[in-house]
Design a protein around this nucleic acid. Structure first.
Lengths: 193, 193
DNA sequence: ACTACTATTAGTACCTAGTCATAAAATCAG
DNA sequence: CTGATTTTATGACTAGGTACTAATAGTAGT
């Protein structure tokens, strides 16, 4: 079954992205066209030849020294906050957050975003998490933007405990849900900073 | 300055290991010998040609044949693992893990260690966390070494679900406890050529 | 000095996975 | 059916090799 040019080029791009180790010959066979057609396609799409592609992959691998992730990126960016009430933060899922294999975000990044939002929303010098129940509702993929919303639901100031609910969304779709029991050290009255 | 064969071959091996992207021609120049000598050396030392070397580096990155989870993706260092049974990992709490204010470790790092250990202990292509209950039992401070122990407690293979318990210790003192409900996807046959 | 030996260099044919350029054939749209 | 687009064919050239044969250089032992 021969496809038209547009469709073929679309699939070509995909195929090569998925497996950069494929030769023009194999591609020609796959799409039932001549090698020359594949080469014209690559030319039009600016896809380099096999050896260049392999080299690129290798170089990326070889010069990979960016192992640690800065804290700012783990936590996400706080875009709205009202202390002791609610807060919203935003995290863009990038290469460093996902399993290489399938581009699904690793759970602990979603947890980190939610947990640090829960810490931030507490109006205190410092809050600590003591207990937490969480649920990963659907997988989050590379490139998606996760918006976490925290809400303080219980304030038991005397005991120094507070409960925060966090829900995280991708395009208004719930992807993560967590309940965080926070400990806040003894309050000093009227001290605001 | 020409070296003798032995010395040249020793350096050759080193040079290529350090920079696999070097051609025979460049090597010949570097050691002031002919290209043929370099090729004889590679033959004797069983060093493949440039393109093969590059391909190897690339493939390592692209992970065509890596069985389970690559170790570097685990937070902390795995020091013992028996798939589907138990695993132990170690995490030294450094500057980047703590609140600057009081040098207490941020909760999500303990979670990350435990969570990735739970993922790693599952003997499958890839496991995902669906649900988790956790408790932060005592604060962990800068400089402390956290040892996390994961134990697979329930295997319901048909449903693709597994429960893993993780307990983390500092000097035999329990600091963190968590229950992780993991999902293991249905196996797909490798389609690669 | 002659021989034996290793080390090095030279040269040729062939390979893969391409490149670039030109021309011809096939297919599709109006 | 014509003209434009798309596809295929062909030939010449490239990098970075392999595999093989043959010649030369250098050194050691007798």
């Amino acid at each position: 079954m021969r496809l038209n040019k547009k469709e073929r080029q679309r699939l070509l791009k995909e195929t090569i992205l998925e497996n950069p180790f494929v030769t023009d010959e194999e591609l020609a066979e796959k799409f039932s066209v001549s090698i020359q057609t594949i080469r014209l396609d690559r030319l039009e799409l600016n896809i380099p030849e096999l050896r260049e592609r392999i080299k690129n992959v290798a170089q990326k691998n070889f010069s990979e020294e960016v192992r640690s992730l800065p804290i700012e990126e783990v936590i996400g960016e706080i875009i709205d906050i009202e202390l002791d009430e609610h807060a919203i933060s935003l995290l863009d899922i990038k290469e460093e957050h996902v399993f290489k294999r399938n581009n699904i975000a690793r759970g602990h990044h979603l947890f980190a975003q939610a947990n640090s939002l829960a810490v931030a929303v507490i109006n205190d010098e410092l809050a600590l998490t003591i207990k937490s129940n969480i649920q990963f509702i659907r997988q989050v993929k590379l490139g998606e933007r996760v918006i976490a919303k925290a809400k303080v639901v219980e304030k038991e100031m005397e005991k120094g405990r507070t409960v925060v609910h966090v829900e995280s969304f991708v395009n208004h779709e719930l992807v993560f849900k967590g309940e965080f029991h926070m400990y806040r050290p003894k309050h000093k009255e009227g001290v605001q900073k």
